[in-house]
Write a protein that binds this DNA or RNA. Structure first.
Length: 474
RNA sequence: CGCGGGGUAGAGCAGCCUGGUAGCUCGUUUGGCUCAUAACCAAAAGGUCGUUGGUUCAAAUCCAACCCCCGCAACCA
């Protein structure tokens, strides 16, 4: 039995969970369920990123303690993950004392490649942050939010010596030792790698207090990178636990916006720690609303909970796993969602189950075969390439084929003519293939597939409420 | 000339590497069926394959130039 470690990106808990987070969880979950069906032992990590100035500031604005603020938000994310039926096994909060301690240990191990240097840049005292040179020029030296001129400010930061590892990382990416999917992102990263400077990994406590303390230096706290990226290790108990059974991760799922940190800073850390690099980085696209990025200022943000409430979890998973491309940006519209639900889930699958169950019930047919399920080669191939939407398509074609076959084989005529033997043979064949297709669908829509297995075991009775009722409104 | 991806029926996409009657899903129209959730099955309509030029017996496919859209470059999930 293989041990398979999979990870999800840990969201920054300064807001509500949204559809982008769901994508990450869903892809990792499908992968986890697939591996479990193959007989692998799977660990699926999830967690929350809770430090940093933005969170500190938000809590202050709300007039509550920062601990209270993150606790409240973490609960929202955990509830959300539960609603999506994500089969995770480990959950890391970056404010957890175990994580913080392990994270400091990791910093210590990295310390040969960490140096202190002066950072100088344009700073807005209103925003409490540095701005890039470009931003400075665009705003002609004055912060548009505060109408105050930027000040030249210096501070001490710790830096991580990425530059020492560029060649090694490039080789790992080019050789496929650390596979980056999709291919076009890999190219982007290789290009980016060239001009990646050493990265600043701490902030003086005068600027930021809500973070993990830098070991042996009370004047600095860690900035996001070391803290957040370490979670994939601290989840397993590293460094005090032996993680060799689980390391390296088989796949790490990340949004395209954070791929660069996972493909550059993260491998550099692992190289210093003497750990193998993750086998695959799967970078998924964004979910757009009407072709546009969802943003609060445009006001086109689709709340995932609204989508969940409309037709339930299976419909949610169905849409985002089949109609949202695994790698590229894809559109969500309510119209597309409704079409997918009505035409595909209800008409293709729901109706197929209904008609087969009714045929079986009317003819007192019981399905008593014990089936050994296997995945088709083509399906396995797509799943292995993390082409989940395409694998889902492939499995769905089997469902559509079955609807065609029922029309061709006309079991109702066989019943009418009293050809019982032929009828039983026909129904066996149809139900057998339905259950096989159902098995291939189960990593994607586990709720529905479980119900289908149940319907066709023992006494077959069509469900009184169809699997995907069309008039259903929550 | 920053790097990369793309422009194919009303919509979403495949085909391009390895030239040879343009395909899939949804939508539309018509017909069929009756086991089923006004469901299912079949057929049809619908495209000068971004533009221009070149190579070739033959170009969506190869080559060149141009136009347009998008991503990254920017602490946006």
């Amino acid at each position: 039995m293989n041990k398979v470690y999979l990870t999800t990106a840990i969201p920054y808990v300064n807001g509500e969970p949204h559809i982008g987070h769901a994508m990450d969880y869903l892809l990792a979950d499908v992968c986890a369920r697939y591996h479990r069906l193959l007989g692998d032992e799977v660990k699926l990590q999830a967690g929350t990123d809770e430090h940093g100035g933005k969170i500190w500031k938000k809590a202050e604005e709300l007039g509550i303690s920062v601990e209270q603020y993150v606790d409240d938000n973490v609960k929202k994310f955990r509830d959300f993950i539960a609603k999506l039926d994500i089969s995770y096994t480990d959950f890391v909060r970056t404010t957890d004392s175990n994580h913080e301690r392990r994270c400091q240990e990791i910093w210590r191990i990295l310390s040969d490649y960490i140096y202190k240097a002066e950072y100088e840049g344009w700073y807005c005292t209103g925003c409490e942050r540095f701005v890039t040179e470009k931003e400075y020029e665009e705003n002609h030296g004055v912060c548009p939010d505060h109408q105050k001129p930027y000040e030249k400010l210096q501070e001490e930061n710790y830096y991580f010596k990425i530059s020492d590892f560029k060649d090694r990382i490039r080789m790992a990416i080019e050789s496929g030792e650390m596979l980056i999917l999709p291919e076009f992102r890999k190219k982007e990263i290789l290009r980016l790698l060239e001009d990646t400077p050493d990265v600043s990994i701490s902030r003086p406590t005068s600027q930021l207090v809500w973070g993990v303390k830098v070991p042996d230096d009370d004047s600095q706290v860690m900035y996001v990178w070391i803290d957040a990226l370490s979670n994939y290790l601290t989840a397993l108990g590293y460094p005090e636990e032996d993680i060799t059974d689980w390391w390296p991760p088989v796949a790490q799922f990340v949004g395209k916006d954070i791929l660069r940190f996972h493909a550059i800073i993260w491998p550099a850390m692992l190289i210093v720690l003497g750990l193998p690099l993750p086998k695959t980085m799967v970078s998924h696209g964004m979910v757009l609303a009407d072709g546009q990025k969802m943003s609060k200022s445009i006001g086109n943000v689709v709340n995932p909970v609204d989508v969940l409430d409309r037709h339930g979890l299976d419909a949610f998973r169905y849409y985002f796993l089949r109609h949202v491309d695994t790698f590229a940006d894809s559109d969500f519209t309510w119209e597309k969602f409704e079409d997918a639900y009505n035409n595909e889930l209800a008409n293709d699958l729901g109706n197929l189950v209904q008609r087969l169950a009714t045929l079986a019930a009317k003819n007192n047919f019981k399905f008593e075969e014990k089936l050994d399920f296997e995945f088709d080669n083509e399906y396995n191939d797509l799943m292995t390439k993390y082409e989940f939407a395409k694998a889902f398509d492939y499995a769905w074609n089997k469902i559509q084929e079955l609807n065609r076959r029922i029309d061709e084989e006309k079991p109702w005529s066989l019943a009418k003519n009293g050809e019982t033997e032929k009828l039983n043979e026909c129904l066996s064949g149809l139900i057998r293939d339905l259950l096989r297709a159902n098995y291939a669908l189960s990593p994607f829509i586990p709720g529905a597939t479980e119900k289908i297995f149940e319907i066709f075991s023992g006494e077959i009775t069509p469900p009184e409420v169809p699997l995907f009722p069309k008039d259903f409104v929550a």
